[in-house]
């Protein structure tokens, strides 16, 4: 496929939206690698769709922010957003923009739109960088808390799935469990992993389902008084009773 054929096919647009098969994604990424000029095409599509999404933006419930931040960083209160300082620097920003614009006037009318374009891109990149640094700082604090305050419980794999490696970070004080899947069996898109709580001789209690992507701890249901947690492979959506033929392992507590 040539660059023009790729442009005309509409595949780049679907790639940015995320509506492509794995093979198509690979094809686009290979084409971009071979023809770096395609990247600016993709960036323009991203900018157009970003504007389209912003035009349809809906403010979420204000209370949701706290709920999400608590879920992400436990009890730690996140740093307040640093956007406020921008309004305080309005005068300085205007002065700098004026100097930049005067420079652009002297430099030549023909290049003005390119400078504006670059300034916009710089603003977007700066905002992305700030967000990434902020998120990484929060993650570090989160991992500190996780490793220092939780019991680390290892999964004991069944002979059917001997290579499964998985850890549960269980914190009785905060009644939270975080699960870190290092190595899991392959499952189909119609299947999920499901956590079960076993207490004494009672029936297994169905808990969270997960797909097992990534090795980063993810929060999962906590059940007080659990003697053993178990993990099985179930149909998508989870089950009310475990399929013991697909038991991948157990995690003794305490």
């Amino acid at each position: 496929m040539t660059i023009d054929e790729l442009r005309e096919s509409g595949l780049l647009e679907l790639y940015v939206i995320g509506d492509v098969s794995a093979a198509e994604r690979q094809k686009v990424e290979q084409m971009v690698k071979d023809h770096p000029e395609l990247m600016s095409e993709i960036q323009e599509i991203e900018a157009a769709l970003g504007t389209f999404a912003l035009a349809h933006a809906v403010l979420p419930d204000p209370s949701l922010k706290d709920t999400i931040l608590k879920k992400i960083s436990g009890s730690e209160k996140p740093k307040p957003p640093s956007n406020d300082k921008k309004s305080g620097n309005w005068g300085l920003g205007l002065l700098l923009a004026s100097i930049l614009a005067l420079g652009a006037l002297l430099w030549g009318w023909m290049n003005k739109s390119q400078i504006t374009e670059l300034e916009n891109q710089l603003t977007i990149l700066q905002r992305d960088c700030d967000s990434i640094v902020d998120a990484q700082g929060n993650r570090l604090a989160f991992f500190d808390g996780l490793f220092n305050e939780s019991d680390v419980l290892a999964l004991s794999a069944t002979p059917k799935y001997p290579n499964t490696t998985l850890f549960l970070y269980s914190n009785n004080n905060t009644q939270t469990n975080y699960l870190q899947a290092i190595n899991l069996p392959n499952i189909t898109p119609q299947q999920v992993f499901q956590l079960w709580s076993l207490k004494g001789s009672g029936a297994p209690i169905p808990l969270s389902t997960f797909s097992g992507e990534g090795g980063i701890p993810q929060e999962i249901d906590f059940e007080g008084g659990t003697d053993v947690y178990a993990i099985t492979i179930e149909p998508a959506g989870g089950s009310q009773a475990p399929n013991l033929d697909e038991l991948i392992g157990t995690i003794p507590v305490g």
Partner: peptide, 12 residues
């Protein structure tokens, strides 16, 4: 900051 910047568009 990540939340403030992007949550309305993602919620939309």
């Amino acid at each position: 900051m990540l939340y403030d910047n992007y949550s309305p568009a993602l919620n939309g």
